[in-house]
Amino acid sequence: MQRQIPMFIVFVSGLTMIVDYFFPRVPYIQGAREIFLNWGRIALTFAMILGIMNLLMSNLRKVALRKAGWIYNVILLGSFALTFYFAVQYKMVPSGNTFITHKGTDMGSSGTMSFASKIFLDVYTPLSGTIFSLVAFFIASAAFRAFRAKNIEAILLLSSAIVVMLGSIPFGDSLFAWLGLEHILGHRNFSWLSTQIQQIPMSAAQRAINFGVAFGMVFMSIKILTGIDRSYFGGGGE
């Protein structure tokens, strides 16, 4: 029973979406998709409480037990409390550099800005951007490592990466001329070569991956809806 009711709910809610899609005139089900999406969003926001509680409790416990590095947990808890206190008072819809409070007041990026929007602009945004920008260093280090690979697959990967990269910078065209590739490929350049690679082998292979992903997704979906695969509920497959 413990597993059967959830399985039944999975089946019915999934089937409702399928019926809504294929038979749009079925009474009661008509327009269920939008309603379910709305319910799902609301439900998942409620569920966030589980995560937030987990975060707060585990950090509080570490502080209480004075575990190694507990001061960092204090920093986390402090920034959470401060942000939550101010953010919950103001509903901010980020739009460019201005924020709109739930009271309907427009606030500029300077002067009258609330403390909550300051946190967003001066803490959240720069940290998010900087962590993302780390990828620029890693994209170079990973490519450098790939240079050492000696099999044909790695060479193909690296060559197409280099061509496409050179095709997107002006330096590529000067290099093309300097290498004398114009004599072989006529009046073409790296950007032409890059376009060809992206349009022919790349799109061909990506189509194949997408086909496969679809097969996998469709069968996984059917297995989930019919309860054949319930391992995500801790059932270990059966």
């Binding site: 992903v213 996998g216 297995k223 054949i228 391992s231």
Partner: peptide
Amino acid sequence: FVVACDYCLIGEELYAASAYLSQDAKQ
């Protein structure tokens, strides 16, 4: 992932893997 990891399950292999690992006949 292909460049930086030792092994990479590509696309549908992710779904196949979940079925394969269960070693269940139906899967």
